[in-house]
């Protein structure tokens, strides 16, 4: 039997009019009950579903906005990080250059100081050697002079020196 013949008798409608009446009546009753009772529930369910979908959509939109904001923040942070990194690198280069300059200046100053100290020490050593030499020459000369003087200090010279001294003391009054 073809599914289109729902009456089971080979026709589209049953032959019994009461069956049609009762069937129709039952149909309308059921339809009425469905419209009256289940309709609002279905409508409510559809409305609720729509609201949930809308809420979900709103939430998704909000989350998307938040995600985009976060993305923008991250991008900004990344940009800031790049700038910070660039700044740090620049600063590090500047510091390194300054340290290098300081080290070079200090090394040059140390070298100058070492050179000056060496020059001063050489000069001091030279002066000391000259002083030692002068003292030795002086000692030898004075020793020789003393010997010569001593050899020539006879009694008459001694008396002459004493008389000269007495005269000088008397003259200075």
């Amino acid at each position: 039997m073809s599914p289109i013949f729902a009456a089971g008798n080979g026709f589209w409608l049953p032959h019994d009019p009461w069956e049609i009446l009762w069937g129709s009546l039952a149909f309308f009753i059921i339809a009425f009950v469905l419209v009256k009772k289940a309709g609002p529930m279905i409508k409510t369910a559809f409305v609720g579903r729509s609201e949930r979908i809308e809420a979900t959509l709103n939430e998704a939109t909000s989350e998307r906005s938040a995600a985009e904001a976060e993305r923008d923040g991250i991008k900004a942070d990344l940009a800031d990080s790049d700038a910070e990194a660039t700044r740090i690198v620049a600063e590090a280069r500047e510091t390194a250059a300054r340290v290098k300059a300081d080290m070079i200046a200090r090394a040059e100053a140390d070298a100058v100081a070492v050179r000056e100290r060496a020059v001063a020490e050489i000069a001091a050593a030279r002066r000391a050697a000259q002083a030692d030499l002068t003292a030795e020459v002086s000692r030898l000369a004075s020793g020789a002079a003393e010997q010569v003087v001593h050899a020539n200090l006879d009694d008459s010279t001694q008396q002459s020196l004493i008389e000269s001294y007495i005269a000088q003391v008397g003259a200075n009054n």
């Binding site: 003087v149 200090l153 010279t157």
Partner: peptide, 26 residues
């Protein structure tokens, strides 16, 4: 060595040959 050195109180009157030689050395 020669000459005279006189000490009178705190005053020293030095006319010695020794002092002259020391001055020469200095």
């Amino acid at each position: 060595l020669g000459g005279v050195v006189t000490q009178i109180g705190d005053t020293l009157l030095d006319g010695s040959v020794r002092t002259r030689l020391n001055q020469l050395r200095d």
